[in-house]
Design a binder for these strands. Structure first.
Lengths: 346, 346
DNA sequence: TTGTAAGCGTTATCAT
DNA sequence: ATGATAACGCTTACAA
């Protein structure tokens, strides 16, 4: 036999029912916090449950309920640190619940992505999924979840859905602020390393950047914008393009930290000193931001808190005891000022 | 009702049996690749399965088999990038199987860690778990898995268990080689930033370092060793201690990349130039190694390959078709030479 | 408020 | 080689 059986000595609902002198259904009601139950009965059953150390079998529940106690994390191919932060926040939200986290990387862009995801969700009968950007920006994915009755919460850089299906950050305003900070420092030739085309986060951040420059009456020639794909190498290449300009930009805003690391790398390669010859601002505040030299001024993206909140939204309303906590849907990003920004040198 | 029911239109084993004109048990035999089956029957059933798009319900299987199709990833609190690499390797090994990955962070050091883990494994009836270092070094955890009939594979920096329960890297030799490289460059005052006490990886790497120095007849005063906890800040602090020495070390081997980033940070803060004033070698070859300035010479730790192999070991022997692939148990680390090492300046 | 009986979709036992 | 029947441990209908 490929799958060897295994005896388990764990108590079942039958044991509890027998010892408590009630039917299994009554025990089931206790487990599921049914409101119509005599307090005395409930107490007696709970005592037996405690004494036996009984824990309901999740597999049996999943079968009967046609629904597993698993929350999926669906992510595309973003930054490793971002994924870790999301996992951490999610697990925090799921802590001390009956839910576990299963991780599902998908290849966005693959034509079979949607089908693969459908099979996954249908087979595993997930309770819900957390959709990370940029997968979360795909409306077809959200519709798929709806169709097959799987709860979902989308994480995004703008309001993508109804509040109970979404947690968002205010990227545009945060970037506008960051850019205003550069302007206030005296910078006028400011380059942008944009995120990849088709990403909502890329769009929002770019618009924040453009708004700030527009408000200050600073022209933004096309040449001052270079597009990257959120990866280090693309930041390096984009910075090379911007730094080749004459005159050179005195500051660069990069749409994420990983590309900002590429900017600093490119500057160092040319013998430019940051921030003396070039100021740099990133976005995310991943650990490397504080660890690189010079420490990177960046926008702190509260992605872990967002994920925690998203997880709580996903499982909200199933805890018979308390009313579901109203989790916020909007999270504010803040500018973290470090050494990578200085006034432009004369 | 807290848990709303949901109708599913998916075909079941009964549909397959009815249409194929066989009993469900026969279908079950086809699914599980039972050897005692008429080829003709199998073919007919497989056709129906294909036509219907039937997929066995994992929840029902889990209940009947008393075993879930989930592989757990148990990790303590190490480097985020390392965890991501492990996840990636694991998922690669699990790709196109019926298994999913469940992530379980645990607080090693907590007195309830073992109990918590037991509850998790027993409740979820995991098929198997991948134990990341340093949790993997805890023999009590391995014994726990054995006791409750959960497969396990331990990842480590040395042979921790029998080959089918372990994947290991040769940290000691790799570090010896890295240190020899520093010596060959002409360094004689070489500092070590060790990993935390109680970690096997820390011990192995330290021994490799000491062996290389011993072989070369270079004295290693206690003051040239500083202990860190694998985190950036600890590397920064340890480097500060080493760089306060008079005379200063001309090179530092850091037991991982994150602490090495701290070393470079500390050097920059003092106005020292790497590699002119100080050569640095790290361990891991996480992405930041190539991204920092200067690019970090480091030991490439093939942790993703190890995790992939570990996953394959976990599910080996259940695929009735092919014989289980013999996965390697030992993985070799290699030195990656980048710009952070140079001969000591006169 | 509680219990009885019938699933949920699969696999194990023991026939034939 | 295949099938009937009883698990697996829980939940929902429907009674009582």
């Amino acid at each position: 036999m490929p799958y060897p059986m295994r005896k388990t000595g764990q108590p079942t609902i039958n044991d509890v029912a027998r010892i408590a002198g009630v039917s299994k259904k009554t025990v089931s009601r206790v487990i599921n916090r049914s409101p119509l139950l005599n307090d005395e009965t409930r107490k007696r059953v709970e005592e037996v449950i405690g004494g036996l150390g009984y824990i309901p079998n999740p597999q049996a529940r999943a079968l009967a309920l046609r629904r597993n106690f698993l929350i999926g994390l669906v992510h595309g191919n973003p930054n490793a640190q971002t994924v870790m932060n999301v996992q951490q926040g999610m697990l925090e939200g799921l802590q001390d619940t009956e839910f576990e986290m299963v991780v599902r990387p998908v290849d966005r862009g693959s034509p079979t992505m949607l089908d693969g995801l459908r099979h996954f969700l249908e087979r595993q009968r997930l309770f819900g999924v957390l959709l990370m950007p940029p997968i979360s920006e795909n409306d077809a994915v959200a519709k798929l979840c709806d169709d097959i009755g799987c709860r979902y919460v989308r994480m995004g850089s703008a309001a993508l859905d109804k509040p109970d299906h979404m947690v968002a950050s205010n990227d545009r305003e945060a970037v506008r602020e960051a850019t205003q900070y550069l302007i206030a420092q005296g910078h006028r030739r400011i380059g942008l390393i944009a995120g990849p085309h088709g990403f909502r986060s890329a769009l929002e951040r770019r618009m924040g950047f453009e708004e700030a420059l527009g408000d200050a009456g600073i022209a933004l020639p096309r040449s001052m914008i270079a597009e990257g794909n959120y990866r280090f190498e693309s930041g390096l290449a984009a910075a090379d393009r911007l730094l080749d300009l004459v005159p050179r930009p005195t500051a660069i805003f990069s749409s994420n930290d990983e590309m900002a690391a590429g900017v600093i790398h490119a500057a160092c390669q040319r013998g430019l000193s940051v921030p003396r010859d070039l100021s740099v601002i990133g976005f995310d505040d991943t650990p490397i931001a504080a660890h690189m030299w010079p420490p990177l001024t960046t926008v702190r993206w509260p992605i872990a808190s967002m994920a925690r909140s998203a997880a709580l939204k996903l499982i909200a309303g199933i805890d018979g005891e308390a009313d579901p906590v109203e989790e916020p849907s909007l999270f504010l990003s803040t500018l973290i000022r470090r050494a990578s920004v200085a006034p432009p040198s004369a």
